[in-house]
């Protein structure tokens, strides 16, 4: 179904968006399997209604939001973001949603709220990937509070002008365009504000390979591959790889968040 939204020219790119069939057919969503087409092929039975999101922890007004309330919480915007996967491929995607800060402000984070944790749903009967021990389920991701409050950090309900398909993280996910894709939790059921950094799934699984920050950085290689270049999905298969940009090209907006930090240490 369609999800009407107003284009936000502030968050727009001249780059050509990746074809919709690739955006919705080439995904990492291990709850449905590790193959790139598994999420599309195996997520049909995933239940997105009823759906509530608990927003709790270090907040003055913890509460649970129904998905239909979240859809009306703020005007829907269409934004075009780059998405850079830690596996060195990338896409350009028109997302629909609004800044996560809108939701966080509703619950009034306390002064102790230093981090935000996102927890993905676990539906064993419709997520065959949960049977494998690849990660310690549920999938947990997290951000520092200033990252979460940054206007670029988006709560996403749709893609390509339509309601999010299950494989893209229905009914709601986050998109953090200057970080590797795995930071953007999908099918979120709980958002917790915390004083300490949460233990995130990939940091738990392979701490030497995946850091908490996971900012896109062409100068800090993954231990098993270079991050200097990326393959843009949907381009000709003879097209050369493209250079990866610092903070995925969003440095102007977000570099200040990391001033004085050694990014090769806090990767």
């Amino acid at each position: 179904p369609a999800l009407p939204a107003t284009p936000n020219p502030q968050y727009w790119l001249s780059e050509k968006p990746t074809p919709e069939t690739d955006v919705t057919g080439y995904n990492n969503f291990y709850e449905f399997g590790t193959g790139k087409a598994d999420p599309r092929d195996r997520s049909g039975r995933f239940q997105t209604r009823p759906w509530t999101v608990a927003v709790e922890g270090e907040v003055a007004k913890p509460r649970s939001f129904d998905i239909d309330d979240l859809l009306k919480l703020a005007p829907m915007e269409e934004r075009i973001y780059r998405l850079r996967c830690v596996e060195a491929w990338s896409m350009v995607i028109p997302w629909t949603g609004y800044s996560l800060s809108v939701l966080l402000n509703r619950v009034q984070p306390t002064s102790k709220a230093k981090f935000v944790e996102f927890t993905t749903a676990t539906q064993p009967e419709s997520m065959p990937g949960l049977r494998s021990r690849i990660l310690d389920w549920p999938y947990v991701e997290g951000l520092r509070i200033d990252e979460a409050m940054h206007p670029l950090t988006m709560l996403v309900f749709g893609v390509y002008g339509k309601v999010l398909p299950n494989q893209n993280g229905a009914p709601l996910r986050v998109a953090i365009p200057w970080k590797y894709g795995f930071k953007s939790g999908k099918s979120i059921v709980r958002i917790r504000l915390l004083e300490e950094a949460p233990q995130t799934s990939w940091v738990k699984a392979a701490p030497n390979e995946y850091g908490f920050f996971a900012n896109v950085n062409p100068e800090v290689d993954h231990p098993r591959w270079s991050q200097a270049t990326e393959r843009r999905i949907g381009t000709s298969f003879l097209a050369p790889r493209v250079e990866t940009l610092m903070f995925n090209g969003y440095g102007e907006q977000v570099a200040a968040l990391y001033q004085g930090m050694d990014l090769s240490r806090y990767y």
Partner: peptide
């Protein structure tokens, strides 16, 4: 049928 990422 070569997926979205034929080189890979």
């Amino acid at each position: 049928g070569l997926t979205a990422n034929p080189p890979e």
